[in-house]
Design a protein around this nucleic acid. Structure first.
Lengths: 239, 239
DNA sequence: CATTGCACACTACCATGGTAGTGTGCAATG
DNA sequence: CATTGCACACTACCATGGTAGTGTGCAATG
C-alpha cells in the first residue's frame, strides 16, 4: 500500500498516526474482522512500516477499545460489545442533552435555530444528490452547532470519539443506507422544539434521535453473530 | 530515582506507564511547573530510562493535555487553562447528573441510599483521623456507587479521567486542606434528596457539590498567576 | 548599527535489534 | 493412551542509533 506521506498542512503526518487511521478505517469497515489477529509484526508487514509506529498504533487502538490486547498472547480486533455501545450511548446522550439545555439557555436560541434549519436544508439537498458523505458531515455540523451555542465547542471532539465507536455498529447495519429522511424529520422536530422554547420536548426528541441506532441493532446481531462478543463464544475463542 | 519495577499483580508495569505515572504525579503536585520544558532527552535522563518509554509517556501526557507539544520546539508542561477546567466541569456535571437520574429511576433507591450513608459514615471517621487520602478514596466510592446503581459502571473511568484533570487545579488551592466537613454535608444533602425521591433537588445539590471548586479558583489564580495561561503572556512565552 | 547567511543544536520521529516471559506442540516417558 | 518436560515460536517491551526538519546565535556583510 502507499501511505500518503503528505499532510494537509505542510508537514507530513507521523507514521504512527497514519497506521492508526488506516487500521481504524479497516476495522470500522470490517475489512479487519472481529477477533482477527494483529501483531506488531503482522501490522508492520501489512502496511510496510517498521514495528515502532505499528506498536504505537496498536497501543492507541487498544486504548480506544478497537483492539484487545491479551498479554503474551497477541492482540486482536475487538468484537462488538453491547457494553461498549451502551456506555457510548449513555455518555453521548448525557452530553448532548446537557449541551442542548445549555444552548437553549444562552438567549441565542433564535440564531441557533436559524443555523440548524440551514443545515437541514443542506441535508435535504445532499439526500437528493445521494451524497451520503456530505450528509453525515452536515449531520455532525448540526450537532456541533448546538455545542457552539452552548459555549462548549471543546466537548465536540469527545462526542465524536464516542460517536466514532458507535459508527462501528452503524456500519454493520443491514439496511446499508440508513433512512436519511427519518433523520431529517428528527432534526426538524428538534429545531421546532428549540424554537418553541420547550426544553423538555427538545430533550425528548434529541434522545429519541440519538437512540435510533437501537432500531437496527438486533437485526445486525442476528445477521453477524460472530462479530459480537458472546460470553460463551468468547471463552472458547480465547482458549 | 528508583522506579518500582514490580507491579501489584505479578508482571511488572511497563516502563512507559511508570514514566507516565511519575511525570503525571509531579505535574499534579507542581513539582514540574507549568511551562517547564520536557523533552525525550530530559525525561529519559531525569528518570533513568531510555527515550522510547519517555517518548511514549510524553505522547500520552500530551493527549491528556498535561503537556503541550510545540512541533520542532519541544514539549512543555501545560499551563492551567480555564478552558480545560470548564470543559471537564461541564462534562462531569452532565455525566454525573445523568447517572444520578438513572440511578434514581432504577427502583433501588433505598439500597443506594444505604450504601451512600455508609460511605458518609466512613468519611466522618477519616476526617476524625485526619486521613485525607482515605477520605478522597471514599469520596470517589460515593460517586462510584451512583454509577453502579445506574448500571453504568464503565462510565466511572471516564469521569475519573475528567476529575484527574480538575484535581490539578484543586491541588493548587491555597486552603491546602479543603473543607472536608462541607463536602460531607453536601453528601448528606444529596443522599437526603435521593431518599426523598426528589430528582430535581438531588440534581441541584449534586451540581452545587461538583461546582465547589470554583469557590477557590480565583484565589488560586491570584496567588499563582504564572501557572495560568494568559493569552498575552502565553504569546510571549511561546516566542 | 541592521541584515543576512549559515553552521550548529535540538526536536520529533522512525528503523533496527534484542530480551524476558509466556504459550504450544511434540517427543519422551509412564 | 495419558502426562510430563522441554525446545521453539511468538509476544510485549525496551535500548540504541540515526535522519529530516526547524529554530538560534553568531559571524560576515552591508
Amino acid at each position: 500500500m502507499a501511505l500518503l506521506k503528505s499532510a494537509k498542512s505542510g508537514r507530513p503526518m507521523p507514521l504512527a498516526r497514519q497506521v492508526y487511521d488506516e487500521l481504524h478505517k479497516r476495522i470500522l469497515r470490517f475489512e479487519l474482522k472481529p477477533y482477527q489477529v494483529l501483531s506488531e509484526a503482522s501490522v508492520s508487514e501489512m502496511l510496510g512500516v517498521s514495528r515502532t509506529p505499528a506498536r504505537e498504533a496498536l497501543t492507541k487502538l487498544a486504548e480506544n477499545k478497537f483492539v484487545d490486547v491479551v498479554p503474551q498472547r497477541g492482540s486482536r480486533v475487538a468484537p462488538l460489545r453491547l457494553e461498549d455501545l451502551d456506555r457510548s450511548q449513555f455518555m453521548r446522550e448525557a452530553l448532548e442533552v446537557a449541551l442542548l439545555r445549555r444552548a437553549m439557555s444562552s438567549g441565542e436560541g433564535a440564531a441557533m435555530v436559524k443555523g440548524l434549519r440551514k443545515e437541514i436544508t443542506l441535508q435535504r439537498t445532499y439526500v437528493t444528490f445521494e451524497d451520503t458523505e456530505s450528509f453525515y458531515a452536515s449531520d455532525e455540523a448540526f450537532h456541533g452547532l448546538i455545542a457552539e451555542y452552548a459555549k462548549q465547542p471543546s466537548v465536540l471532539p469527545e462526542i465524536f470519539r464516542l460517536k466514532d465507536h458507535m459508527d462501528r455498529f452503524r456500519h454493520l447495519m443491514v439496511s446499508a443506507v440508513e433512512d436519511l429522511d427519518t433523520i431529517i424529520k428528527q432534526h426538524i422536530a428538534i429545531a421546532d422544539a428549540i424554537e418553541a422554547g420547550d426544553e423538555a420536548l427538545a430533550e425528548e426528541r434529541m434522545i429519541k434521535h440519538l437512540r435510533r441506532i437501537f432500531d437496527y441493532i438486533d437485526e445486525a446481531r442476528d445477521k453477524f453473530p460472530d462479530y459480537f462478543e458472546q460470553s460463551a463464544e468468547h471463552a472458547r475463542a480465547a482458549r
